[in-house]
Design a protein around this nucleic acid. Sequence first.
DNA 1: TCTCATGTAACTTCATGTGTTGCTAGAGTG
DNA 2: CACTCTAGCAACACATGAAGTTACATGAGA
Lengths: 127, 127
Amino acid sequence: MTSEALARALNTNPVVVRRLMGGLREHGYVHSEKGHGGGWTLSCQLDRVTLRDIYEALDAPRLFAIGNRSEKTECLVEEVVNDAMSGVLADVTAQLLARFGQITLAALHADFHQRLAARHAPATLCK
Amino acid sequence: MTSEALARALNTNPVVVRRLMGGLREHGYVHSEKGHGGGWTLSCQLDRVTLRDIYEALDAPRLFAIGNRSEKTECLVEEVVNDAMSGVLADVTAQLLARFGQITLAALHADFHQRLAARHAPATLCK
DNA sequence: TCTCATGTAACTTCATGTGTTGCTAGAGTG
DNA sequence: CACTCTAGCAACACATGAAGTTACATGAGA
């Protein structure tokens, strides 16, 4: 499948697709080929890759919209609040990643086919 | 304490302080007075207000940097992934808020004074 | 050699949060 | 009464980061 086609399906731009897929390629989840007839192919077993793997392959972007304004501070009040929040955020992050780590692509794939069957529709890409 | 003074302590602008404090005032955590000698005064018991209360008084700003691109979609793949992620995010959000709900301002206050004593420094605002 | 792909850098656009200005209104002071 | 000090508020400007776009290089088949 080409970046072009994926971009259309995802309502975005081929270059954006390449940027994202680049991370997946580096981890061996997909393979790309240049030139005529090239494009992207899956190169992993769906039951061995989780949402967490994907997240990390995508360079682990920021998860939270909240957080400390600065890591180090002179202000004792800020320090106290930072420490209180950091502790919670660290724990919650760990739990979130653990949960993502339990969701395999195979599970999503199965879910997809189940919903598809329920829709009595043929299997095509969104676009 | 005036917005002016708070802004200096927080390295920000008086108007920004008023915007934030406005939420706290609506919930009765602080009280404000105009005019000469006016400013902000605390009007709650520190042991009865938690970080969660503060968060909600501040209009519950976005917690996560990740999330669904769109709530409703025609795309079955997107739907499957959204549902998988939404479930995790909802759970994790609940846990985060629960944790915040256990951290009272009194606890932070106590922590502050403990650290202050350890520093052998007088109690003054950062700036 | 032409076309079709990815790879990549640089730039533009957009969204969101933060900061700033200017003005209003209320409250004490001289 | 005039003056000063304060919050309240709307409107605008700026900063940041994510997403989208353009342009060009490289590789591979036809």
